[in-house]
Design a protein around this nucleic acid. Structure first.
Length: 587
RNA sequence: GCGCCCGUAGCCCAGUUGGAUAGAGCGUUUGGCUACGAACCAAAAGGUCGGGAGUUCGAAUCUCUCCGGGCGCGCCA
């Protein structure tokens, strides 16, 4: 990575200068850290380091420090100048050529690194209840989670993706009772959901259960026909049948949709398995042994306030059943037991109050609470015709499937990832659908298609529209790849066209930046950085294209420029793959 | 009331550990296609970084406070 290289060289220069007492009063024990940046003014250079932060140790003015340090820095083919407190580095063609040849050689691996050092990460996201279709918010977690997983894998983490299925508790009973009503309706009974608002809350009156009821009547005919006319007469066994049928069908639908949305989990972890295996009970006992529990008002409480939570939390209710938290504590404990070093969860911001008690449980069980990292995602608003449609109101609820069908998988994924997780996302349906330059996903895909097109044209027959004359292909199909790989990249810089040179240099440095983007994105758990980068890269390429004719009659020169074009399509493809957005060769 | 997130150009947003004159895109105005995709490019205009105070050589960034918006504060899951 160029940035890192420049940093290393400069830091060594500081150490040498200090050892030779050339940096004023700065001592070897003084801890410093430097940072590279891209100069605002291109004339200054390609990369700059601000040394002002050293002035507090050296007791020298920043410009003097920069000048002094510059004397200690020698890099082949790199011009070093100082302006004010900055050391500026300007790369020569050898550096740039190496970037291109690296990309051509490393291909789809270019940009990957060992930053994560194989750290075992379990990334849990979506984890929706199997009681209904996904809403748009789930789409944001699905897109972000899968993109983050891809990104972190690319950066050298060992990522395991898991979906926690909340298939225990009252909600599943409610689901079964709701299916009962739909089944009876299917059988011609005059029965309906309660109209009373409070009673209605313990049902799922959405129409999505109707198709499931139809299936139930066919697949579980005997049971369906044995059902009582009155909900209150429903036997526990019958309810269980209905519940588990609805649950598995819903989960199946959810899995299908995740698949369609290019979100692949390594595992679906069932809450009921946690109970059946005795892990919940074991975990409660463990907390008890550590004296983290007490009884009050007939319930069992966890002393979470000892670890920073606002108050203690109930684990076992007065009716003897466990709270959701109890199972969740056991679940996270189990993640640690399974050997994961890092537990990353993506939760909706509405669950943020839940974080302290979760961390408290990890600490109470004797582990480092920092192993758990919760990414709180702000919610999604749908913007339709310039107006925000409020989520949460059932009537306006748009399902993720509706959105994907309307907008397409590519645009939906891109727009779900494009904003930092900390910002409320306004998802503008019309904008996401538009195939114009207003829509970044098309801007980026277009750049890729354009690069592919140039490459195709290099070895295919075309016809001049004006003269109808055939244009002979520059390269034979079989020689093209080799010609590009063997191209003399020095030819790139033999032109007098300053705009072409400048845009080529900018483009190539942008390609190199991909390495930094992968690291930064993985480190900050922020896939949106990749979107931002892609837009910048696409822009740099469009600019290069405008100023530089790639397919010139000079074959050697064309090969060199094609090498750049190939590098661009390679990096765009890799970055889009991380986002699981398609990189079309034609549009 | 307490907690978390947000407030940056007309609009939507970047701004990585505090550093050069606060940046892209859209929109607006102007200019650019008889060779590779104009679904593109170039240029211009546009800002008290919500207000105020503090820390610092230096603050959009850190601290405090106020204002505005979103979300949460269950023996629900």
């Amino acid at each position: 990575m160029l940035k890192q290289y420049i940093l290393d060289v400069t830091e060594n220069a500081v150490k040498t200068a200090v050892a030779e007492s050339s940096l004023g009063q700065m001592k070897e024990s003084d801890e410093f850290s430097l940072k590279t940046e891209i100069p605002k003014n291109e004339e200054f250079g390609d990369i700059a380091i601000n040394v002002s932060s050293l002035s507090r140790y050296a007791k020298m003015a920043p410009p003097q420090i920069a000048q002094k340090l510059a004397e200690y820095i020698k890099i082949d083919d790199c011009a070093i100048t100082t302006v004010a407190g900055f050391i500026n580095f300007k790369f020569g063609k050898t550096f740039l050529n190496t970037i291109i040849s690296d990309i051509l050689n490393e291909k789809s691996q270019y940009g990957s690194c060992d930053y994560g050092q194989g750290q075992k990460v379990i990334l849990e996201y979506v984890s929706a209840n199997p009681t209904g279709p996904f809403h748009i918010g789930h789409g944001r977690w699905a897109a972000m989670g899968s993109a983050l997983a891809n990104l972190m894998k690319f950066a050298g983490y060992d990522v395991y993706q898991e979906f926690y299925v909340n298939d225990a508790g009252n909600q599943i009973k409610n689901l079964g009772r709701s299916l009962y009503i739909r089944v009876m309706q299917e059988l011609g009974e005059k029965i309906d959901f309660p109209t009373d608002e409070v009673e209605r809350k313990s049902f799922y009156p959405g129409e999505y259960l109707i198709p499931l009821a139809k299936e139930f009547v066919v697949e579980k005919k005997a049971i369906a026909e044995s059902l009582p006319k009155n909900l209150n007469d429903l036997q526990t066994e019958q309810l269980n049948e209905l519940s588990s049928f609805a649950k598995m069908k819903m989960l199946g639908l959810q899995k299908d949709l995740l698949n369609k949305f290019r979100t692949e989990f390594d595992n679906f972890y069932f809450e009921t398995d946690l109970h059946k295996s005795g892990k919940v009970e074991a975990c409660v006992n463990k907390l008890k042994e550590k004296d983290m529990l007490y009884e009050k008002d007939g319930a069992v409480w966890f002393k979470s306030s000892l670890f920073g939570d606002d108050q203690d939390r109930v684990l076992r209710k007065t009716d003897g059943s466990n709270t959701y938290l109890t199972a969740d504590i056991a679940y996270h404990h189990d993640k640690i037991q399974r050997g994961f070093d890092k537990l990353i969860n993506i939760w909706g911001a509405d669950h943020h109050g839940y974080v302290p008690r979760m961390k408290a449980s990890i600490e109470a069980l004797g582990d480092n609470p920092d192993k758990l990292e919760v990414l709180l995602g702000q919610l999604v608003n749908i913007v339709l015709n310039g107006e925000a449609v409020r989520m949460g109101k059932r009537k306006n609820m748009v399902t993720l499937e509706d959105l994907i069908d309307e907008v397409g998988v590519d645009a939906t994924r891109y727009w779900m990832i494009i904003r930092s997780i900390d910002t409320t996302l306004d998802f503008d349906i019309e904008l996401a659908k538009s195939k114009t330059d207003e829509n970044p996903v098309f801007y980026v895909q277009y750049a890729h298609a354009r690069a592919c097109s140039i490459f195709r044209n290099a070895s295919s027959e075309r016809v001049n529209i004006e003269t109808k004359e055939k244009i002979t292909p520059l390269f034979d199909k079989d020689e093209l790849e080799k010609a590009v790989l063997d191209a003399d990249l020095n030819l790139l810089w033999n032109t007098d066209n300053e705009k072409s040179n400048a845009s080529a240099k900018k483009l190539i440095l942008k390609l190199e930046e991909f390495k930094s983007i992968v690291q930064a994105g993985a480190k900050l758990r922020a896939p949106y950085i990749v979107c931002k980068y892609l837009q910048e890269l696409a822009g740099a390429f469009h600019q290069f294209y405008t100023f530089t004719r790639v397919l010139t009659d000079d074959k050697a020169l064309a090969a060199a420029r094609l090498a750049v074009v190939k590098s661009v399509s390679t990096v765009i493809k890799t970055a889009l793959d991380i986002l699981a957005v398609d990189a079309p060769e034609r549009m």
